[in-house]
Design a protein around this nucleic acid. Structure first.
Lengths: 360, 360
DNA sequence: GCTTGTCCGTAAACTGTTTTACCAGAGGGG
DNA sequence: CCCCTCTGGTAAAACAGTTTACGGACAAGC
């Protein structure tokens, strides 16, 4: 009783072979005659042999496992990202160990250390706050290959995959201008974060490009949460803003904002045109269906995994920084500004979904 | 250049000790004089030594990693569950490797095999479909300790943690009866699943216990999805059902159903009283805020991890089967049935949140 | 003075693979 | 007949820790 689990040695002995032969056969490093193969197969079945994964990892120097550090999988955006990463990793034969940093630097550092101790081959790192430089050293010291996703961490040399935030702002801005809006409000994430700054810059570029007299005012920054969205919306209503259009920088913020708008009886888009950002939440189900900048979340995850695994498997890849294109999905939450009487000088909106392009 | 990473041997040599001494000190198996400790510390810092996790796992026979198989983290219910599991695992010093089965038996089997190959110490398994018996063997053969979560897989001997589905149905049913409803519709998940059957049984038990002449009719089963919810709602409206109340067996189904009801202009609870199940989605934000049976999702995850780790760390635990209590959260989506003119013989609702109890 | 026990420490076995270096024998070409 | 190249296979050395069994030195107890 309590019989030991079968080892490779046992299989080899039972098949009258050396361990090396069996091992190489199992790893397809050798072509054996059918008779020998059958002997091995029989021995394995009989003994119920399963290779010991720890020994395998030690010997090969890798475990075929990736680590993913993400602020919070309860947030649909990160859930979707994690799902994409997991799927792609699995497709390429890698496992994924998940770490929820809850967006605190402490836990981020702790998980980085833990992942080093845990033997993952590489790490995909997603943070969601402005970086204060304290992450730089633990990342470099972890010794693991790493790729930074979604939000930058300055000073770290690694491959990085972002979305084209500026293009997102630009597409939204241009659409609003085209529809005749001249004052655009903006509900953003943390002010210090690149995503916020770049999206804003995109809107401004759209205005500048249009040659039209327009402005982005009522810029309220905070964190990516429904609470912040509610606060923004209340503030916008309270100040009786002159803005006729609004760009909301995330689904989470949008959910909070819509709650307040609905409660206040604000009609969208009759009284206020609204564009969202992310397009993960089922905005098509909302009333009205929401026009939104769609992030290529799945592509983001896939690309990060691809870059990481490539680096891992010897291919000597340079660190790259990529900006994946976003697109504008037109639905029904953007209309003409209320004060505009006729179809004066406003141009028509363009095609239904407008692909952004990769910026260098 | 390309200098080798420091090994324990290097540390020992540099500190003028044997590897055993250093190893035991690092693992707190020995108390050393301060001078020796300092030598070790110096050597480690100088060499930048990090223990090799693979070697460690091999030697100790475990990796302090758990596996979680879940249908889809994109679903908020499972996302929440995964978050709870991850948090608890991390708290106890364990990592978590994530597998998304997408609810297909094939992928479930594949992941089970993969997790065996990947060296996790134990597995938490969540499936979301009626089990056809084909999972039984791969689970047993995996050789890993396993705990089944949320939905049963018959014939598997393992610890299992469920919620008390019947109590959920019962609490909902009793509340509706108390409010005067006599015909209750039910939108459920797959008919073959225990969760569906037990919740339904709970409602029926509530009716039986009340001694009142009531019935649960318009029972529509399908999968846990918004699409199914839309289909259910359309069917209910189309048949001009006599039901004055409705129990919806999941958030996902609810989202679809509400969309149709809203579109049809149905007033809740004036024309139809509604109770939800899960209470993960922010139902408090809905209009009206939804009365719902709340699942103890965090507790579910924590308990599963606890059971698993206990078994792993030698404590000889019997396989247990637990049913965690649910509670009824009263909000504003349940009222009196429309045809009821006065507050006739209906009893008052009870306290605000009613804890269920553990059933044996 | 002898035993006993503690403290600090060592050598060696053990974990279970993969991989390298090598080799006997068979078959083919010259 | 000799040389060469496959084929099918082996022994042994990594991989990098943990753990066991043991042992010398020194102090205390008798």
């Amino acid at each position: 009783m309590a019989q030991k689990v079968a080892r490779l040695t046992d299989v080899a002995r039972s098949a009258n072979l050396s361990v090396a032969t069996v091992s190489r056969h199992l790893n397809n490093h050798i072509q054996l005659p059918e008779a020998t193969v059958a002997r091995i197969r029989r021995a394995i079945d009989e003994l119920g042999y399963h290779p010991n994964p720890h020994a395998r990892s030690l010997s090969r120097g890798r475990s075929e496992t990736l680590g993913l550090v993400v602020p919070d999988i309860t947030n649909p955006y990160f859930a979707r990202l994690a799902a994409a990463v997991e799927r792609e990793a699995a497709r390429r034969g890698y496992g994924l160990t998940l770490c929820a940093s809850l967006n605190t630097q402490d836990r981020e550092r702790e998980y980085l250390a833990r992942l080093s101790r845990t033997g993952v081959d590489g790490i995909i790192f997603v943070s969601n706050h402005a970086d204060d430089g304290s992450l730089r050293e633990p990342i470099q010291v972890s010794g693991r290959r790493i790729v930074i996703l979604d939000e930058d961490i300055a000073g770290v040399t690694a491959s990085k995959v972002f979305i084209d935030n500026q293009q997102g702002g630009f597409l939204a801005g241009r659409h609003l201008i085209d529809m005749g809006h001249r004052r655009i409000a903006f509900f953003g994430g943390p002010e210090a974060m690149r995503s916020t700054q770049e999206r804003l810059a995109g809107v401004r570029r759209a205005i500048a490009d249009s040659g039209v007299e327009a402005v982005v005012g009522d810029i309220y920054c905070g964190d990516y949460s429904p609470e912040h969205g509610r606060a923004c919306a209340e503030r916008l209503l309270a100040t009786r803003s002159a803005a006729t259009a609004l760009l909301v920088s995330s689904d989470q913020i949008m959910i909070g904002a819509l709650e307040i708008f609905r409660r206040a009886g604000l009609r969208i888009p009759a009284q206020l045109s609204v564009i969202g950002f992310d397009d993960i939440a089922p905005f098509i189900l909302f009333d009205p269906p929401l026009t939104s900048i769609r992030q290529p979340v799945d592509a983001l995850g896939r690309r990060a995994v691809d870059l990481l695994i490539r680096g891992l498997e010897g291919e000597p890849v340079e660190d790259v920084v990529e900006h994946l294109p976003v697109e504008l999905v037109l639905r029904e939450s953007v209309g003409r500004p209320p004060q505009e009487s006729g179809p004066a000088k406003a141009r028509k909106p363009r095609r239904t979904t407008t692909k952004g392009s990769i910026t260098p």
